[in-house]
Amino acid sequence: MQSAVGERRPLTARAGVLGLQGDFAEHLATLDRLGVDGVDVRRREQLDDIDALIIPGGESTTIGKLASQYGIIDKLKDRVAEGMPVWGTCAGAIFIAKDVPGHPHPLASLMDMTVERNAFGRQVDSFEADLDVKGFGSEPFHAVFIRAPRISRVGPGIEVLARLGDGTVVAARQGRLLATSFHPELTHDERFHRYFLSLGKS
């Protein structure tokens, strides 16, 4: 698995980005630069037409509410059971976590971890940081944390990919599920997108 990182293997053919709310356009633009067919997914049936799904940054309460209301969560669980890779960035990481203390709306509950919302404070505490990411080589990944969540517990099947200087987990993977507390779609570094797109080939 380790070897997939950064390699130029054939990428996923059609990747969806959940377009209910948030910065889905930035993910779609990144996919486009990578030559991947991106699909703006707003309806349940569209989940049948994609090979991978990204849940973007946004407000997890809004995304969770709309996704559950339109039956997207149930369908997504089926697709994940069939092996479809899913990546959540920021609000998306909250959306796919099994345990989110005090979350007012339904979530997809896919990945065995606890994610705490707004864990670093309010907007004035939002920050940028350089991360060493497992498998990305010596060049740090510049990460943008906006009212970011943190991964406060990881289950036994989870591989930690990146931590902040104080040890806080901010990127993790469980099989074909990927979670980042930050926003690779807001910077020009495409390594996380490549990494995610390689998961479906593993």
Partner: peptide, 9 residues
């Protein structure tokens, strides 16, 4: 970036 996260909302 925070405004980006509010889009579509």
């Amino acid at each position: 970036g925070l405004a980006q996260m509010l889009k579509g909302g």
